[in-house]
């Protein structure tokens, strides 16, 4: 696996798009949270700012985790481009012709997705520590550190979903379009329909939504806690649902790559 990943690294380390999209994510996440922390970003009036959030333990993880779940689309686009590039350049064929098995090519991409999720989680961790320290309070560490694990689950779900779409559609434009259409509109619609028609919120268990449920908008979470309305569904179910979906993406894409012509 190490040899495979080092080859994936050779493919991206001199690729400008890789660095630009990564830089956008690396910059946007702290910049946005900085804006929130200092009240530059506001929604509301009369001294009320519903975006105002607490950046001390133990809330820092869920705040940054939530915003990560939005900015992570930069990296999803990156996963899509890196994968569809192989089809566009036909280098997927060349890798196999040169001596990889199809499965090695497949696992190279999955390895990339896992590493990217781990690095994103590490970056969120560093941001959390820095923001909490800047707030002057080091007490309470690590706080709700399980939310950091949820961030990992969410990024892994988003990246592997993007990977599946890239394997299916093979062209970057259409794959990115479908990714945004699904994640922003189709799933929201489906979720609302399902939850409206059926009891016990099955819509929350849709592919990306189950991970989104782990990191809801922070204010909502606090309100729920205050009102003792904490959703009956335990987060453990959402973690399990996320991993079930990830395994499903893996199995579908594996079958697709092993059985079809390249």
């Amino acid at each position: 696996m190490q040899a495979i990943l080092s080859i994936e690294w050779m493919k991206v380390k001199k690729y400008r798009t890789f660095w630009i999209l990564s830089a956008l994510f690396l910059f946007m996440l702290p910049a946005w949270n900085y804006g929130l922390k200092n009240g530059v970003l506001k929604v509301g009036g009369n001294g009320v700012n519903i975006l105002n959030q607490v950046y001390s333990y133990s809330y820092v993880w869920e705040n940054i985790g939530y915003w990560t779940s939005l900015f992570v689309v930069f990296l999803s686009v990156l996963v899509i481009i890196l994968t569809t590039n192989e089809y566009q350049f036909k280098t997927n064929r060349q890798n196999v012709i040169d001596g990889w098995s199809r499965l090695q090519f497949f696992h190279a991409k999955w390895g990339m997705v896992v590493v990217l999720s781990l690095l994103t989680t590490l970056y969120v961790f560093i941001n959390g520590v820095v923001f909490a320290a800047a707030g002057g309070s080091m007490s309470g560490f690590p706080g709700h550190i399980e939310k950091l694990f949820y961030t990992f689950v969410l990024t892994l779900n988003y990246f592997s979903f993007s990977l599946l779409l890239a394997f299916i559609f093979k062209r970057s434009g259409i794959t990115i379009g479908i990714f945004f259409l699904y994640s922003m509109f189709v799933e929201t619609l489906l979720k609302s329909l399902l939850n409206w028609k059926l009891s016990s919120n099955p819509g929350n268990f849709l592919p990306l939504q189950c991970s989104d449920e782990l990191l809801p908008f922070p204010l909502m979470d606090m309100l729920k806690t205050i009102a003792k309305m904490q959703s009956e569904t335990n987060n453990a179910y959402y973690v399990i649902a996320s991993f079930v979906w990830i395994i499903i993406y893996y199995l579908i894409s594996r079958r697709l790559l092993l059985k079809s012509d390249w």
Binding site: K11, Y15, T91
Partner: peptide
Amino acid sequence: TPNFYHYL
């Protein structure tokens, strides 16, 4: 066809 990474 020759299959290579265009940007490398």
